[in-house]
C-alpha cells in the first residue's frame, strides 16, 4: 500500500468533495421542491397533468440514472451546437447554453431523478392523508390552495420524512456516476489519481472510506431531524 500521493492530491480531493456535496444538496432540495407538485398532481390533478406526472415518474424509475445523464449531456447537450449552426442568432444569445459545463447537466439530471423517485413517494403520502381531515378543512371554508398549504401538504410531508433519509442516501451513493460525463467530483478526482499514479486500489479504498463517513453523518443528521418532530402514537 502506498499513500504518499495523498498530501499532493488532497486539495483536489477537497474540491471534489465540495462538488459532490453541492451536487447532492442542490439536487435533493430542488428535486424535493419539484416532487411536491408531481405528487400532488398525481393524487388530484386534471387527467393530462396526471398522466404527464405519472409518465415522468415511470421513466425516471424505470431507466438507469447513467442513461438519463448521458441522454441529457450527450443527447440534449449536443442539440444546442447544432441549433447554433442553423440559427446564428441563437448562437449569439445562447452561447452560455452551448458552452454549459458538464456539472450543470449533472445537477439537472440528478434533480430530475430525485424528483421522479420522491414524486412517487409524495403521491402515496398525499393519498394517505385521511379524507376526513381534508373534508374538515373544506368545511371551514378554506380555499383549495389553503387546504393544500395548511393541511394536506404538512400532513403528507410528515409521513414522507423517514423515506427521505433512504432516498437521500441513495442519491449520495449515485453521485459518483457524474464522473462519466467529465465532472471532477470525488470519483472524478479519484480516477484522475489512479491514472496519474498507476495505483489500482488505494485511491478507491480512500474513496470508499470517504463515502462511508458521509453516509454515517447523513444517517445521524436525518435521525436527529426526525427525533425533533413530535409524533403521537
Amino acid at each position: 500500500m502506498r499513500w504518499d500521493w495523498l498530501p499532493f492530491y488532497f486539495p483536489m480531493l477537497v474540491h471534489g468533495l465540495y462538488l459532490t456535496l453541492v451536487l447532492l444538496v442542490v439536487s435533493v432540495v430542488l428535486g424535493f421542491i419539484l416532487a411536491v407538485p408531481i405528487g400532488l398532481v398525481q393524487a388530484t390533478g386534471p387527467a393530462p397533468l396526471r398522466y404527464l406526472a405519472r409518465g415522468f415518474c415511470t421513466f425516471v424509475r424505470g431507466t438507469p440514472l447513467l442513461i438519463q445523464l448521458w441522454l441529457l449531456y450527450y443527447g440534449i447537450g449536443s442539440l444546442f451546437p447544432t441549433i447554433g449552426l442553423a440559427f446564428p442568432g441563437f448562437k449569439e444569445n445562447f452561447m452560455w447554453l452551448i458552452r454549459l459545463d458538464a456539472y450543470y447537466y449533472a445537477i439537472v439530471a440528478f434533480t430530475l431523478s430525485y424528483a421522479g423517485y420522491e414524486g412517487e413517494v409524495m403521491r402515496g403520502a398525499f393519498l394517505g392523508v385521511p379524507r376526513g381531515e381534508l373534508e374538515a378543512a373544506r368545511a371551514f371554508g378554506m380555499s383549495p390552495w389553503k387546504v393544500v398549504s395548511r393541511v394536506w401538504f404538512p400532513r403528507a410531508v410528515r409521513q414522507v420524512l423517514p423515506t427521505l433519509t433512504g432516498e437521500t442516501i441513495d442519491q449520495l451513493k449515485s453521485t459518483p456516476i457524474a464522473f462519466t460525463i467529465p465532472v471532477m467530483e470525488l470519483m472524478g478526482v479519484t480516477s484522475r489519481i489512479r491514472q496519474d499514479t498507476f495505483l489500482t486500489y488505494e485511491p478507491l479504498l480512500f474513496l470508499a472510506l470517504v463515502y462511508l463517513i458521509l453516509t454515517f453523518i447523513l444517517t445521524r443528521a436525518f435521525g436527529y431531524v426526525e427525533a425533533q418532530i413530535p409524533t403521537r402514537r
Partner: peptide, 9 residues
C-alpha cells in the same frame, strides 16, 4: 453504505 460504482471498480 458505499456507492455501487466504487464497489464495482
Amino acid at each position: 453504505a458505499v456507492p455501487e460504482l466504487v464497489l464495482i471498480l
